[in-house]
Computed example of a mutant assay.
Amino acid sequence: MSEIFNDALHARRLMREEFELHRHASYQRAYRDLNGELLNDRGRAAHVDPYSLFMGNGARAYCYASEELRDWWEDHDRPTVESFEAHWWRGRFGYREEHPGSRLREIA
């Protein structure tokens, strides 16, 4: 494999590790802020793991999330890999949304 490809894989692994830490911290904060009330009646009846609402499909998350959690996400955002990755790359390489030559503006 090329050195560029290997570097890209390494960067992707680092980003995913940091994202998992971010997602876990977001879950813990929501759990604390909402006194554990993360699921609605439908989610409790389906025995949904509340942590699973912080990963994967957004439609599923909003389907099973309590109203309080949905409101919490309005204020704190629901972590997604896509949004985290864009911010991570901008921070890592010093890009800014207003950076004239940044392709990240188009992606984010």
Rank of each mutant, 00 (worst) to 15 (best):
R32V: 06
D33Q: 03
R23N: 04
E68Q: 11
L39V: 01
D41S: 03
E74I: 12
Y62C: 04
R70V: 13
Y31H: 10
E17F: 01
E17G: 07
H24E: 14
P79M: 06
S26L: 09
W73K: 10
E3W: 15
H47V: 07
G58K: 02
E68H: 12
E82M: 15
A8L: 08
A45Y: 02
A65F: 11
G56H: 00
R16Q: 15
A11V: 09
R42Y: 10
P50A: 01
A8C: 12
R29M: 02
L21E: 10
E74P: 04
Y64I: 02
R23L: 05
A45D: 04
S2N: 14
C63L: 11
A8F: 07
D41M: 14
S66Y: 08
D7S: 07
E74K: 12
D33M: 01
L38Y: 11
S2M: 06
F5K: 10
H47Y: 10
R12M: 13
E74Q: 05
S66H: 05
D41K: 10
N40P: 02
F54H: 05
M55N: 14
E74L: 05
A11R: 11
L38G: 04
N6L: 06
N57I: 01
Y62I: 03
M1H: 03
L34Q: 00
A46P: 00
E67Q: 15
E20C: 07
H76M: 04
I4M: 13
R78M: 03
S26M: 07
H24M: 15
R60T: 00
Y27T: 13
E68T: 10
A61G: 02
A61Q: 05
W72L: 06
L21M: 08
D77S: 15
W72P: 06
A59L: 11
H47D: 15
F19L: 13
M15Q: 06
N57E: 03
R78T: 06
R12D: 14
L39M: 01
R29T: 15
L34M: 06
E18I: 00
Y62T: 14
G58D: 01
A61L: 05
H47A: 08
M1P: 01
R32A: 14
E37K: 14
V81M: 12
E18V: 01
H47S: 05
D41E: 09
F84R: 11
L38K: 09
A45G: 00
L38F: 15
V48R: 08
P79V: 09
E74F: 08
A11Q: 14
A11Y: 15
S66A: 10
A61M: 11
D77G: 09
D77W: 13
D7G: 02
P79Q: 12
Y31L: 12
E67P: 08
A61T: 14
D77K: 15
F84W: 10
D41A: 08
Y31T: 09
R44C: 09
S66Q: 03
F19H: 05
A61C: 10
Y31A: 13
F19R: 07
W72N: 04
R29C: 13
A11N: 13
G58Q: 03
V48Q: 09
F19P: 02
S2I: 02
G56R: 04
L53C: 03
S52W: 00
A59Y: 15
A8P: 00
H76F: 05
E17Y: 05
N35Q: 14
A25K: 06
H22L: 07
D7Y: 05
F19Q: 08
I4D: 15
M15G: 04
N57Q: 13
M1N: 08
